[in-house]
């Protein structure tokens, strides 16, 4: 009789997603991990499934006035306003650093008009070291556009179709949670040739200082992220998975492997850790380790076997 501990159970975290080869399905979410160097002292970037860098527009963008951030129960309100160095700034300042690593680099892109999305996608597509684009059609903090693309199916289709025409990079479409039905948006992404969808972006939200009666954020409203939004995200991922067969990257309130596993069962092929990084820069590594431990404990040979396995 052999002891059950004689042969340690091995599980495989790797998978292919939208043409990307991921060593594990745990990414870091756009806007919470900078452009790579910020956390590189404390996180070995080569251990990540992928890095999704903060949103890039064609031209540099100054973002909103301050205060831009406010802690609330169970999460965070932010209205950074997509401050970024622009495509050329990113390519010159950050891409050489990222190229030194053996990790897929996903660049989140945004614009105020369809033409902006097209031009930034074109510019980034000609640079080596960028492995996929995540198209942000859902930022709640930009008046000029952003979320309007993410809350009208016709506009979403238009921007996705236009970007699809100009790039051969894998395209991930980041969806807004601020819609009555997520499924038409997921289908629009699939129909327009996207390789994957990611959800959810933060929720439009607001906080007021009761002493001054003024909004806490200079932008008045912001996006709610963190633990509070996780169950909503699970529901939306579950619904999107019913609607489309392209892979889903799930984010929203992941703090440990628990939430990541939930997302995978609900229908996601990969996940991204966001707000939790601020409290624990190594949260993404804890999630990877916890996910592996979960798979071993359940004798699941590959993480791929966990995806879309919710029992109803």
């Amino acid at each position: 009789m052999t002891s059950p501990t004689a042969l340690p159970f091995k599980t495989d975290l790797s998978l292919e997603l939208a043409g990307l080869r991921l060593r594990n399905p745990v990414m870091v979410a756009s806007g919470t991990f900078g452009y790579g160097p910020e956390y590189a002292d404390v996180v070995d970037l080569n251990r990540l499934g992928a890095i999704v860098v903060k949103g890039i527009s064609l031209e540099p963008w100054t973002g909103n006035r301050t205060p831009r951030l406010h802690e609330v129960t169970g999460g965070l309100l932010n209205a950074i306003g997509l401050q970024n160095p622009g495509a050329e700034g990113f390519i010159a300042t950050y891409l050489p650093f990222l190229r030194k690593y053996d990790v897929p680099v996903v660049v989140n892109i945004w614009g105020r008009a369809v033409e902006d999305y097209v031009r930034v996608a074109e510019r980034l597509s000609s640079e080596p070291g960028i492995h996929a684009l995540e198209v942000n059609i859902s930022c709640p903090n930009i008046k000029e556009g952003g979320i309007s693309f993410g809350t009208r199916v016709d506009l979403a289709s238009q921007v996705i179709g236009a970007v699809r025409k100009v790039t051969r990079l894998p395209l991930i479409i980041k969806l807004s949670p601020n819609v009555s039905d997520i499924r038409p948006f997921a289908r629009a992404a699939a129909d327009e040739g996207a390789d994957a969808i990611s959800l959810i972006n933060s929720f439009p939200a607001m906080a007021i200082d009761i002493e001054t009666r003024r909004p806490v954020l200079a932008n008045v409203t912001g996006g709610l992220s963190g633990a509070a939004i996780h169950p909503i995200a699970v529901k939306l991922v579950y619904e999107a998975a019913q609607a489309v067969s392209i892979p889903i990257i799930a984010m929203g309130g992941i703090r440990s492997a628990q939430e990541a596993v939930e997302f995978l069962i609900a229908g996601a092929s990969a996940v991204a850790v966001g707000t939790a990084t601020f409290a624990d820069p190594q949260a993404c590594l804890r999630v990877i380790e916890g996910l592996e431990a979960y798979l071993v404990r359940h004798r699941i040979a590959s993480v791929r076997e966990l995806i879309r396995t919710v029992r109803l």
Partner: peptide
């Protein structure tokens, strides 16, 4: 926010 230059808050 982050303290590391990532979040731009």
């Amino acid at each position: 926010g982050c303290g590391a230059g990532a979040c731009l808050a």
